[in-house]
């Protein structure tokens, strides 16, 4: 349903953030994209969200080319990015301003209950903890019920406990609304725990170098052998990619001068 078709992205300063990226995501699938910093994984998400334009190739949702933010595609940023002048409920309803008042209230209430923050509806963002704020951010992206939810390292700034609980929350939301999820992360355990499929990226230029169909049934045991072995496979691919990078640099004499 979401297809990334031989997409290149070169920034005006000449950085090749993405080269010939291809990826097809099935409806309701959870896809994780892992890679080190600067491998182009965030660029990929910004293109799919319609915030930036591709240099070549195209991104399509159910056949429709995405060139600008699309109503069926939601995005969760690394930081919550809540609007501090709106209450929690108003923040969640931010993307619903075109809906009738009752529908808006209903959608906000439903998703607030889903993320367990029904009692916080009238609070200000400044009164929330980091984990709560990110839950509100996910709720805001999900409130209009998009078909696709993109997440850009959504839990990377949280502590380990909060991160684990938010991963459970995300799965719970996915069970409830069944959006297609594309999650960009540098946390291999997160990818192994959450995803149906994991893609590994390598930088300069950003591209996919490995793909794993995990095939682990849910609910998953975070510390079980299936998740552990998936984690090892992904780590090995990442390690190879890093080694390749180092060799690549050694082969380029210009870089040493």
């Amino acid at each position: 349903m979401l297809s990334i078709e031989s997409v290149d992205k070169t920034y005006p300063n000449g950085t090749e953030a993405l080269a010939r990226a291809n990826l097809g995501v099935k409806e309701g699938e959870i896809v994780a994209v892992v890679g080190g910093s600067g491998c182009g994984k965030s660029t990929l998400l910004r293109l799919a969200a319609g915030l930036d334009r591709t240099s070549r190739g195209r991104i399509r949702l159910d056949g429709e080319t995405i060139e600008a933010p699309h109503p069926e595609v939601g995005l969760v940023f690394q930081e919550p990015r809540l609007l501090p002048w709106l209450t929690v409920a108003q923040n969640i309803g931010f993307g619903l301003s075109d809906r009738p008042r009752e529908e808006r209230a209903r959608l906000v209430r439903e998703v607030l209950e889903r993320v367990g923050l029904a009692d916080y509806a009238e609070r200000w963002p400044r009164e929330l903890s980091g984990g709560q704020a990110q839950r509100v951010a996910i709720a805001r992206a999900l409130a209009p019920r998009p078909k696709v939810l993109l997440l850009d390292e959504p839990f990377s700034s949280l502590d380990a406990f909060t991160r684990a609980s938010l991963q459970e929350h995300l799965l719970d939301l996915w069970e409830a609304f069944r959006p297609t999820l594309v999650l960009v992360t540098h946390d291999v355990e997160e990818a192994a725990f959450l995803a149906d499929r994991v893609l590994v990226m390598r930088p300069r230029p950003g591209r996919f170098i490995a793909e794993f169909e995990l095939g682990i049934t849910r609910p998953r045991d975070r510390y079980g052998s299936a998740v552990e072995s998936a984690k090892r496979k992904i780590l090995r691919a990442l390690d190879l990619s890093l080694r390749g990078q180092r060799e690549g640099e050694e082969l380029a004499p210009a870089a040493a001068i």
Partner: peptide, 16 residues
């Protein structure tokens, strides 16, 4: 800019 992007993601018109 990050706050403005939130507006873009929800496809606000310029006046909005």
């Amino acid at each position: 800019r990050k706050t403005v992007e939130v507006g873009r993601i929800f496809r606000l018109s310029t006046p909005a």
